[in-house]
Design a binder for these strands. Sequence first.
DNA 1: TCGCATCCTG
DNA 2: CAGGATGCGA
Length: 802
Amino acid sequence: MPDHDHEFLLNRQTKRRRVDIGVKRTVGTSAASSAVSGPASSFEISASRVAKNAGIFGAMNSHHGSDQDMLDCAGPQFGEGGESKSNVLRKLLKRANSYEDAMVPFPGATIISQLLKNNMAKSGPGAGGESTFPSSAVSSTGSEAPQEDVCSNSSQDSPQECLSPFGRAAACHFDVERLNVNDEHLRAKRARVENIIRGMSHSPSVVVPPGSGGARPAERERERDRDREREREREEEGHGDGPPPPSSPRESFRENKRKQKLPQQQQQSFQQLVSARKEQKQEERRQLKLQLEDMQKQLRQLQEKFFQIYDSTDSEGNDLENDGGNLSEDSGRSDAGIADGDLDGQDSAADRSDNEMSDMDPEHFLDRARAMLREQSLLTEGGKPKREGPMRGKNQGQGPISMRAEGKQLAETLKQELNSAMSQVVDTIVKVFAKPPRPLPQVFPPLPTPQDCFTMSGDNPSVHPASSRLHSFSDVIIPSSMEPFGGVPVPSANDQTEALPLVVRKSSSDHHQSSAVGAHGGHHHPSLHPSSLSGNMGFTPSSFRPPFHFPLIGYPFQGPLGAPAAGYPGKDRASPDSMDLSRETTSLRTKMASNHHLGHRSCSPTHPGSTAEGLSLSLIKSECGDLQDMSDMSPYPGSTIQEGLSPNHLKKAKLMFFYTRYPSSNMLKMFFSDVKFNRCITSQLIKWFSNFREFYYIQMEKFARQAINDGVTTPEEISVSRDCELYRALNMHYNKANDFEVPERFLEVAQITLREFFNAIVAGKDVDPSWKKAIYKVICKLDSEVPEIFKSPNCLQELLHE
DNA sequence: TCGCATCCTG
DNA sequence: CAGGATGCGA
């Protein structure tokens, strides 16, 4: 919006300030904090999170467990070493995130290298007192391997390792002979475990976050080379404390790191014990890793099988024929997949042979799945014997075959379910909208009290009171026919076009539907309703009611109403109006949902006036109890309720202005009985008349002054006729089409008003800022009765066709 | 304080 | 014609 002048701006700002205050209050803390410190703090939060994640990335153990780990790590130092060590290991392996998750940030080779390196370091030269170098420089993968990396590695490795540098010193004292003896063994083990880990990191379930230094194939190669170098290095170091061979700075850093871990002074026996335990643990870890790897393998197999199942469901039709062919293909595929993601070839066979037993686990699982599927098929297809998997000649191929069949069956079952659900939904909808005319439930205008609602629907005991209540809409009665929709707010039910909610209650509510569904039918075209529902109210959350309510034309507010039936063909009468409405839709500036295009016709012939007039009645009754018998008085029953004011309503209001300049809200409700009244509608109508008056008085003042300027001296000289300028202006404003004969009384009132203005101006009262008030007081008493015809929602047609 | 009416502005 | 601001009366 353009800002015009300072005052406007000021006003705006004032208002805005108010709003902002409110916002501050509601959004309050976050807004205030975000003003200055908010972003910073949030950044800090996220930064800390990142740090934590970095911890996770940098360490096998996330920081959640680090405290405990540290405690555990500290344990051995105080004497309960063995127990806690194995506990730590178990804990590590049992971590909720699973081992492989923890491994993720670690290139498998690196982990193992680190682990083994730590182990080796213990058997490395006892060059104590070496300077400590930043461990980050040791990173073999180029990823920043922070100190905690080492620590957490070692924490998983051995508790003592966490106690760097002093605690580590204990662990890092070593036995040279033992190293020599174990070196080869260790190397072999290491290679093996590295391969395992590589295979793990190949596994599809192991996602190596990009940029986290994950072991990519090329990197792995380099890694392995580096590790070999390291081993060579260690060998050299192990045979003598000679100067480290000339190596790259990286290598020297690595060595320095190793030296950093070297002990200063420790008792040999304890170290030996520790070393022995380390060996044990190493073995244990290896076993565990192997197990883990096997489990991963099984997981992959499972994935393969499920993929096959879904493939078969996707391409059903030819899978029966192709099953045999696919068998080998599938088995080959799965084998290939395993081998591909597995162990770089070497050791894979041995590792797999280790775990043939555990291969049974997925099979068990699959058996269970098959059993379930069979059960399902029996239930759904009357126990048709299903083709069982043939003899289990091949372990790999058998699963896919039967799984294909079962998967296909599963797919069929699902399809059947979906089809039935969909057909149910469709039937429901068709029933709802295509049933023969029955008493139409109608959209209620705002019902201030539930009693009104009951009054209206109370005549019919079949209408559940609750169902005719407001449900989730504050001002809309959801007819009982909506109950089949799960009693959920209609908007959501319509918004969600999926069958889900419907399906859930389809059968249980079916007869509800059949009884209540008919209430919808009427003259509506079936196709009309979905659009109206989805387009106008579908997106309206039940908790949110727009200021100008969505139309519920399709849902007349009331079901079978024993109310007076006037047998009025409302549709015929209303349709012209609705046509007008649809023509003028675009010009309508009202914010309410423009429901007029559906407009004005959902009344049934049998229960016509009871809808609209009864509605207005209920409204009026709620606010002024003396009008309860208006339904009998109303000669124009038979229209439906609109949720908003249409251009025709505006036109009608303008015409009404010829009779009344100060209509009461009750009068408005009476005369706009086809509108579902609420506060906003009332305000809008009042505003309309206020605007009419504004224009009217402006014209009066203008012409009064003009008369004065023209030399008129006495009010008697002033008269308002149908050919005077004033009349034309007014007529142009309120009766633009000039298709309404302005009542004579209006001319009189205009004349009186003009003279009042004239007198006031002549008397100089216009210096008083509120000088018009006296005039208003006079004019407000000049209202005349508005013809009854204006009470008809279709008065425009009637009036304009007369 | 609320509702209404007017005034002002767009 | 609508929205906001303001003023006034109950």
